[in-house]
Write a protein that binds this DNA or RNA. Structure first.
Lengths: 114, 114
DNA sequence: CGGTATCCACATCGATACTG
DNA sequence: CAGTATCGATGTGGATACCG
């Protein structure tokens, strides 16, 4: 997902509000900072990322931990509930990785026929 | 999903354009007619259902078969590619079935705290 | 029955600028 | 660094009516 050519960004089967699923995937290996999350989610504005993180926190998927430092540091981490969500989302990612070329070929063929 | 109280309709992890994932799930047991699909997808307007089905057909997920009869009959069916998509989507459905109460409880708790 | 055709409300998403 | 504040474009979804 950190690759600019990663197909996750164009998969038509993104989860929910477009970014939430990718955030969950980004948190697989442990806590991440706000600015770290902005990297793989290319193009996401701070506003939208904030909204996404708030929504996930509200639903008990992630925790937000702010450290009272200068400069400020905030870390987001999957909760146990969030971890249970990781699996089905990862399954969707696997599907996209495997079948996206087929899908795009079908799409192109369909468009050419019209 | 055919139950009015089914949680699938409120799951925050719906796939893609909100209806596409549910359509795939609806086609699990074989071909379905346009009007049949309108039943479990409560509230979907003909326009939106048409758009959803076109998009799925375009991506090679379903086939559309029109029978030249009076009155007209049209059936939609999963392609082999569409069948491969069924599994990860079903996994998301299972997740929702299992964890939605926990999620809603977390949400309510979060909202009460603010 | 299985759609189209219009029109519209609303939410989402984004760009930009600014702050503790 | 990690946001917030505004504002605006976009487009998705929906209500309603009509057609072959």
């Amino acid at each position: 997902m950190f690759d600019p050519a990663c197909p996750s960004g164009v998969t038509p089967f993104r989860i929910g509000d477009k970014w939430a699923g990718m955030v969950v995937l980004c948190l697989e290996d442990g806590p991440r900072r706000f600015s770290e999350l902005q990297v793989p989610l290319r193009g996401v504005t701070p506003k939208v990322l904030t909204e996404t993180l708030r929504a996930l926190e509200r639903d008990g998927m992630i925790t937000r931990t702010a450290y009272p430092e200068i400069p400020p540091r905030v870390e987001y981490e999957l909760t146990p509930l969030g971890r249970t969500l990781f699996e089905p989302i990862a399954a969707c990612r696997e599907w996209a990785n495997e079948h996206l070329p087929t899908l795009l070929a079908a799409r192109e063929s369909f468009d050419r026929a019209r």
